[in-house]
């Protein structure tokens, strides 16, 4: 099962290495990872997306807590969060295919961020499902490059 774990850490050198090292040495897989400072510059948030059984995710969280630089961990409830990732897709586009691609982009409320003679670059943000959908529709045109951020997520409502 997929779990999204949000980890607040001290914003210090080496902390990310400690976290990723812990995952590899205990045999857990990170599906995606996003890091950035929070509103407090001394604290960073690491959002991890992990595929694991219920028992393992419990162990993962406990082991993470043992890292001295980890301040707080939250497992987010997938039914009550806003979840986003951002993707840049560079796709083949000539004068014949361009209108069709633009149509898809409009439907998905994605953005064109670069247009060249034979290619278009599209930016999309959204949850994994939406992003995946766009990717599938663009594939037949020939995807030249695809760059994605890790997933980030925030729980809904006043709860932090």
């Amino acid at each position: 099962m997929n779990h999204i774990v949000s980890v607040l850490v001290e914003n210090k050198a080496g902390v990310l290495a400690k976290i990723s090292g812990l995952f590899s040495r205990r045999g857990y897989n990170i599906e995606s990872l996003a890091v950035g400072p929070t509103d407090d510059e001394k604290i960073s948030r690491i959002t991890l997306s992990v595929n694991a059984e219920e028992h393992s995710i419990e162990q993962i969280i406990k082991q993470l807590y043992k890292l001295i630089n980890v301040i707080k961990i939250q497992e987010l409830n997938p039914s009550n969060i806003v979840e986003r990732e951002l993707i840049l897709i560079k796709v083949n586009a000539d004068s014949k295919t361009r209108p069709e691609i633009l149509e898809i982009v409009t439907v998905f409320r994605a953005n064109i961020v670069d247009v060249a003679k034979k290619t278009i670059m599209i930016e999309i943000t959204g949850n994994s499902r939406k992003v995946k959908g766009l990717e599938e529709l663009l594939r037949p045109f020939g995807i030249l490059e695809l760059v994605r951020t890790g997933k980030i997520a925030c729980s809904r409502g006043s709860k932090s």
């Binding site: 050198a13 080496g14 290495a17 400690k18 001295i68």
Partner: peptide, 16 residues
Amino acid sequence: ITGIAAPITKHNYLVK
């Protein structure tokens, strides 16, 4: 050494 020792220490520091 902090990299090497990370899995076998409770915590470690490189003082800069």
